[in-house]
Design a protein around this nucleic acid. Structure first.
Lengths: 162, 162
DNA sequence: GTAACCACTTGCAAATCGCAATCAGTCTCG
DNA sequence: CGAGACTGATTGCGATTTGCAAGTGGTTAC
């Protein structure tokens, strides 16, 4: 990929300036999804398999994901977030908070963005620590209150659905 | 535009999920640029005029910009940021900070992102107040220290260039 | 053994992109 | 008054990207 300029916002856009890359990372970060099939069928947006394959390849090349074989199934691949991808949590937070405020979001799907935003830096740091444990094997310690951040986000969603 | 889902991150991506929309808003927010020609020639990335025209139209339709005639020149248009666009400052900040950390940015161009990030919520709020004054006519009061945030960012850049 | 599942590729039509040239109206300057 | 530059766009066109459907070679569960 050619670089149009060394501006950080421009370079970020050259990485995420498309309709799918951040959707994939969103599903991995917030949904805990690790496999091709889950990404293909899991999101409501309905990504096509060729686009998914090319984006996963690009994200691995850019150092946002790593790919390894699943020992339980020779055909299966496991994708993991790298530290660079985990540090997108504040970007996701800013983007989610902005979207919740200015776009016609559905209430159930925006509650998670709200909870994460209202939790402040502390909650986001805790979430990132849990992602590091999950994807990089770096111990995060037991979750305060017995529930992980992802569980808390999911519970907020479930409560809203009812 | 069709909506793929009501998820705030997805909807934000449907607005900004291309290579140019945020570049235009970046130049308006950080560069103080208001006219078509300035946007066309000002950025180092070199947007094509047809793309710029279509993006400006889209951003006006989405409520991120407003367009009005320039009284000094009947052919001239002035574009202004709306409150929705001004509130993208935290998104720009998060994106710029991430890019500065993980992408091969040039030092001069990333210093502004660093200054803005290190200034914390206070500096960003001040910056947004100045943008509201500039684009919405809402008084922001005199800049603390006699320099606006944009001036401070530019000075940091100039100092780095030398 | 066979049916479902796995990550991924291929073919193809449609949309979008980027570049260059062009547009008509407006302003500046001599 | 007339030449030339400037205004925000538009047009034509080839190249790239997208989205959809179907298919690939192989693995696994029953």
């Amino acid at each position: 990929m050619e670089r149009r300029s060394g501006c950080p916002i421009n370079l970020s856009l050259e990485v995420f300036g498309d309709r799918w890359s951040l959707i994939i990372l969103r599903d991995m970060i917030f949904g805990g999804v690790r496999h091709f099939r889950e990404l293909l069928n899991g999101s409501t947006e309905g990504i096509a398999s060729n686009i998914l394959a090319s984006r996963l390849k690009k994200l691995v090349e850019l150092g946002l994901l790593t790919r390894r074989d699943d020992p339980s199934h020779k055909q299966k691949a496991i994708y993991s977030l790298t530290e660079a991808a985990i540090e997108l949590v504040p970007v996701m937070n800013a983007l989610g908070a902005w979207g919740s405020r200015w776009l016609p979001v559905s209430e159930e799907l925006s509650i998670r963005a709200q909870v994460l935003d209202e939790g402040g830096d502390e909650l986001r740091e805790r979430f990132m620590a849990e992602l590091r444990e999950e994807h990089l094997g770096i111990a995060a310690g037991p979750p305060p209150g017995g529930r992980t951040v992802r569980e808390r986000l999911r519970e907020a969603y479930q409560e809203k659905v009812r």
